[in-house]
C-alpha cells in the first residue's frame, strides 16, 4: 500500500492535483482512497461529480462516533475511487486540527484506510499539530509539496519541509519527503526556480503541471480533467504524474531553507525587470 499526501499553500491546486491523480490511478485499475483533510471539504468534489459528501465530523456530530458506519462516509467516485471528506468546524471557531486527528482515528477503527494507494489531500499549511498528524502517525509516508513559483507558495512548502524534518527525527516516524510538484502559474523561469528550491531542500522536482484552461473547464463541469478531457495533453500530464509517483522510491529528509536563503533563491531566479 502506498500512502501519499499532498501538502501546500491554500489555493495552490492540491485538490485538483489530488483528484486527477486519484482518477488516473483509479483508471489504471488500482484501488484508490482519497481522503480530504480540509474543513472546507471540497477535495473529492470533482471525483463525485459535484455531489457533496457527508463529512466524517459532521456525521460524528449528528450521531456520535458509534453511529457512523464506514458506508456513511466513504462514497465511490469516478473510476472507483473511494472518497472521504474529514470536514471540520466553520471558519473562526473550534479546532480543525483536532478534527483531523478524530477523523483518522475513526477511519482507522473502521478499517477504511486500506487501498493500493491512499491519497491524502491536506489543508494548506501545517498550522498546528493536528494537520501534521497524518505525517506524525505514519499515514502520510510519502509527502509531496505542491507549489508554484510564487514566493508565498514556496514559503508554505518550506514550512512543510520543516515539519517533515522535525517529525523525521522521531524514531517511529516513517514520513519522508517524496518530491516537489510544480503546479505552474505560468511565471517566467518558474520551473527553474522550483527545481532549484527542490534541490536546495534535498529533494527533486518530480512533475510540472502546466497551466491549462481545460482544468477550469473540467471543474465547471464538475469533472476531473481525466474524465472531462481524457485525451487532452493535461490528462496525459496527470497520468504521467500517477505513474511517476507509483514508481518513486526516492524519499528524503528535507533540509528546509532559512527565510533569507529562500528569498535569495527566489531573487536569483527572478526574471529580469
Amino acid at each position: 500500500m502506498k500512502q501519499i499526501a499532498l501538502y501546500g499553500k491554500g489555493g495552490i491546486g492540491k485538490s485538483t492535483t489530488s483528484a486527477n491523480l486519484s482518477a488516473a490511478l483509479g483508471e489504471s485499475g488500482r484501488s484508490v482512497l482519497q481522503v480530504g483533510c480540509d474543513p472546507k471539504h471540497d477535495s473529492t468534489r470533482m471525483l463525485m461529480h459535484g455531489e457533496p459528501l457527508p463529512t466524517v465530523l459532521e456525521l460524528v456530530r449528528e450521531r456520535g462516533a458509534a453511529g457512523v458506519a464506514l458506508e456513511d462516509v466513504v462514497r465511490c467516485g469516478y473510476a472507483g475511487v473511494r472518497c472521504v471528506e474529514a470536514g471540520g468546524p466553520e471558519p473562526g471557531i473550534g479546532c480543525a486540527g483536532r478534527g483531523i486527528i478524530a477523523t483518522f482515528q475513526l477511519l482507522e477503527e473502521r478499517g477504511a484506510l486500506e487501498a493500493d494507494v491512499i491519497v491524502y489531500d491536506v489543508l494548506g499549511d501545517v498550522v498546528c499539530g493536528g494537520f501534521a498528524m497524518p505525517m506524525r502517525e505514519g499515514y502520510a509516508e510519502e509527502v509531496y509539496l505542491v507549489t508554484s513559483g510564487e514566493l508565498m507558495s514556496l514559503y508554505a512548502a518550506n514550512n512543510i519541509a520543516k515539519a517533515i524534518a522535525r517529525l523525521a527525527e522521531r524514531p517511529r516516524c516513517r514520513c519522508r519527503l517524496a518530491g516537489v510538484i510544480l503546479n505552474a502559474k505560468g511565471m517566467e523561469r518558474e520551473e527553474e526556480l522550483v527545481r532549484a528550491f527542490a534541490q536546495a531542500i534535498g529533494s527533486r522536482l518530480v512533475a510540472t503541471i502546466p497551466r491549462d484552461r481545460v482544468v477550469q473547464l473540467a471543474e465547471l463541469h464538475r469533472r476531473t480533467v481525466i474524465e472531462y478531457a481524457p485525451d487532452s495533453p493535461q490528462a496525459a500530464v496527470y497520468r504521467r504524474l500517477a505513474d511517476d509517483l507509483l514508481r518513486n522510491t526516492d524519499l528524503s529528509i528535507p533540509q528546509p531553507l532559512t527565510q533569507d536563503a529562500l528569498e535569495s533563491l527566489a531573487f536569483a531566479h527572478a526574471p529580469p525587470f
Binding site: R61, P89, E90, R98, G99
Partner: peptide
Amino acid sequence: GEEEVIFGGE
C-alpha cells in the same frame, strides 16, 4: 468533549 473541541464549545 472532542466534538466541542473540534466544532467549538460555544
